[in-house]
């Protein structure tokens, strides 16, 4: 299952993703409603965090009302009418990628497969990728780093 991945080397913390997300979902300009949130630590950390669509999602496991489920495509999705607003999912998620708003849970739904945040990301830090693709990129980065001297020579 692909998910929205953020490369912290590229993320500048501009929060355009936080504005785009609710503009698509709720048609408002309000970062508080965003399903993707930027974390900044001084001086060199900026990273956007959103749902990773986990294969064994802890949020689904702890939800007492069956309001979260894995869809046929692999998306972790919300059945809003079943949500009782207990925040157990927020406690369970290791990344802080799911929370309540106005008493109901909101989380990344990948905009139906073409995430608006990815399209709008100026530094191209956000990508829609699968675990396989991330691993491939990491392998390349790792090898390039390990062999930098040899490559240069």
């Amino acid at each position: 299952m692909p998910y929205v991945y953020c490369d912290p080397q590229l993320c500048t913390g501009c929060r355009a993703c936080e504005l785009v997300c609710p503009s698509v979902h709720e048609r408002v300009f309000n970062p508080r409603l965003s399903r993707i949130r930027v974390v900044r630590l001084e001086f060199v950390i900026d990273i956007a965090i959103t749902c990773r669509q986990c294969e064994n999602a802890p949020c689904i496991a702890v939800c007492p009302s069956g309001a979260l489920r894995k869809s046929r495509t692999g998306l972790v999705e919300v059945i809003a009418e079943r949500c009782i607003g207990c925040s157990a999912c927020s406690e369970a998620c290791p990344f802080g990628a799911i929370e309540l708003h106005d008493g109901k849970v909101i989380k990344c739904d990948l905009c139906g497969g073409d995430p608006a945040c990815v399209k709008r990301c100026t530094p191209k830090a956000l990508k829609l990728v699968s675990s396989e693709q991330v691993a491939e990129e990491e392998r390349h980065a790792y090898v390039a780093q390990r062999t930098r001297k040899e490559v240069k020579a």
């Binding site: 913390g13 501009c14 355009a16 001086f43 530094p123």
Partner: peptide, 12 residues
């Protein structure tokens, strides 16, 4: 060592 931006900027 790092690039940053103001809110919602397309230049950065």
């Amino acid at each position: 060592v790092h690039r940053r931006s103001c809110m919602n900027c397309s230049i950065q």
